[in-house]
Amino acid sequence: MPPAKAAIFLVVTVRPGAEDDVRELLGDVPSLTQAVRFRIPEGNLTCVVGIGAELWDRAYDQPRPAGLHPFVELEGSKHVAVATPGDILFHLRADRMDLCFELSRQLMQRLSGRVDVADEVHGFRYFDQRDLMGFVDGTESPTGAAAVDAVLIGGEDPAHVGGSYVIVQKYLHDLGAWDALPVEEQERVIGREKLSDIELPDDVKPSNSHVTANTIVDPDGTEREIVRDNLPFGAVGSDEFGTYFIGYAADPDVTEQMLRNMFIGDPPGNYDRILDFSTAVTGSLFFVPPADFLEDPDATVAVVSEVPSTPVDARPDADGSLAIGSLRRSDRS
């Protein structure tokens, strides 16, 4: 799917004793999404549900997915990737904010008295997919079949085929300090030309540029990818401006390696210079299960002996973008 024009990123914590009620609600998310989407079908409303490690242990009898764990806080020589509470992520995206807002309202009505909101961000598309620092965001995200392959779990974790992992972070920008930089210096921080979005040549691009820190290459030369669905957000009255980072991957270690490069540095101390202008104030990791797990988490998990190499496209009635969280185990078996 194309980048979202509007989104609500809603992270909640579940109150003790409310786990059964919350599990029931999560099973109804696809039907709630369909009910709201039906009112404006061309609005492309979707909702992805992510489950945190601590809630998984409290609410589900099955072993954790292989890569699910609490977000690991990273403390570098100057900057910290903080870990913050989060049991459930609702990633609502559409071409119109009213659709996201209505679905989030319906979800929170059902969850009233059972959860507490840890973070809520309303993101918007900014001009030609730029962040508030003026650069195009998400340029290197894969598309089409490559995106689906990068996102969906396969035979490496047979019990959770069709699922995914998602890491979210809320970044606040010091736009005053950023705008004081000459454009040429901003480009060196990012690793791209500001106007054209063309990556700087290797002999010009600094080793601590944002592009360099976020490029992960295996020893055999294969570049490892994630799907970003970032959006900017802001409030002019409170002088709050930022980017909501959200990265989907079949293996959370890919995203975690990017964060290690950013905050600790490779080598250590050579941190991503964008962090001098952009501060992470939240950090959480979630597992996005297939739709049939949400609807019936107690169903027998089929062991998948072989996963087809051809990725499954997102169905028109899918409740998640790029089929994230919308596939059924049988779709990949």
Rank of each mutant, 00 (worst) to 15 (best):
P3E: 04
F9P: 10
G221F: 06
R273P: 13
M258A: 14
I324A: 15
G163V: 09
F245Q: 14
E42S: 12
G17H: 11
T13W: 00
A250E: 11
R23L: 08
V189K: 04
M97L: 08
A145V: 02
P142V: 03
E240P: 11
D319P: 04
D174G: 14
R37T: 08
Y248I: 03
T84L: 06
T222M: 12
E42R: 09
F233W: 15
S196P: 08
L107V: 06
W178R: 03
A180I: 00
T46K: 08
D28T: 05
H173N: 11
L25M: 11
V72I: 15
A147S: 14
S77L: 14
R23I: 04
I88M: 07
D157G: 14
P16A: 12
D21Q: 08
P316S: 05
I40C: 05
V312W: 02
L103P: 12
G234I: 00
E185T: 07
L259S: 12
E54Y: 01
P63A: 08
I198Q: 02
T33C: 13
S104A: 04
D292F: 07
G144I: 07
L55I: 03
V121A: 07
G283N: 02
V312S: 13
G113H: 05
R328H: 11
D57G: 02
R315W: 00
L111T: 02
R130E: 01
D137F: 10
D272M: 04
L132G: 01
R329Y: 05
S309Q: 11
A81W: 00
W56L: 03
L294K: 05
L231I: 01
D276V: 05
Q34M: 09
V115C: 11
V254S: 07
G134F: 00
V29C: 13
A53K: 02
F101E: 05
A146Y: 02
E42V: 03
S209L: 04
R93H: 08
G27C: 01
H160F: 15
D149W: 06
D251K: 13
V29S: 04
D331Q: 14
R192F: 12
E240H: 13
S309P: 02
A323E: 12
A147T: 13
D61Q: 07
T279D: 09
D149H: 15
R114H: 01
D98V: 00
R37A: 12
L172G: 07
L152A: 15
E306F: 14
I40Y: 10
G163M: 14
I190H: 09
E199H: 08
A249S: 15
T46A: 11
L285E: 05
C100F: 03
H79M: 10
F38Q: 03
A314G: 15
M262P: 02
P297I: 02
D313W: 12
R329C: 01
G155K: 13
G17F: 15
D239Q: 12
D28L: 09
M262S: 14
Q106K: 00
D331P: 08
